[in-house]
């Protein structure tokens, strides 16, 4: 039993979790008709990528790349810099999608992709 838990523990790395989250997001986008849930799924996928970038090329002993006279192995600062940018983009995209969704809802009165599409076709 102890051995089994150790095995599982090894499996739960940042990389694997991020891949799982990524495909949870993919499922949400394909299978849910709710527009709001589509936007949330997209945010989940973006969050999973941030986790992915931060956990690749990383081991537990690494120290943060801040300050002078660092001892030991220093974490790669590049993915961190990239991901700050990706977070900004992700937030603005989510904000834009929500704004668009609000005006879409005012026009069509539905949060359902299928119903919105039918109403669009009527015009």
């Amino acid at each position: 039993m102890q051995n089994f838990i150790m095995q599982i523990d090894k499996l739960i790395t940042g990389e694997n979790v991020s891949l799982a989250l990524f495909f949870i997001g993919v499922y949400g986008i394909i299978a849910r008709r709710n527009i709001l849930k589509s936007i949330i799924s997209l945010s989940i996928m973006q969050a999973s990528i941030i986790l992915f970038f931060l956990s690749i090329r990383h081991t537990d002993q690494m120290v943060p790349p801040i300050g002078i006279g660092l001892t030991g192995e220093v974490a790669d600062p590049l993915p961190q810099a990239l991901m700050i940018t990706a977070i900004v983009i992700g937030v603005s995209v989510t904000a834009l999608s929500l704004t668009m969704f609000t005006s879409l809802y005012h026009k069509y009165g539905s949060t359902n992709w299928k119903k919105v599409k039918q109403k669009r076709g009527d015009q």
Binding site: F22, I35, V93, M100, Y108
Partner: peptide, 25 residues
């Protein structure tokens, strides 16, 4: 800003974002 283009713009934005997430991965 007519209602038909709302739907078109929304589809465009979300589908492209969805694909670009794959690109970033």
């Amino acid at each position: 800003r007519d209602s038909r283009s709302m739907y078109d713009g929304m589809i465009y934005l979300l589908v492209n974002m969805f694909a670009m997430v794959f690109f970033l991965m």
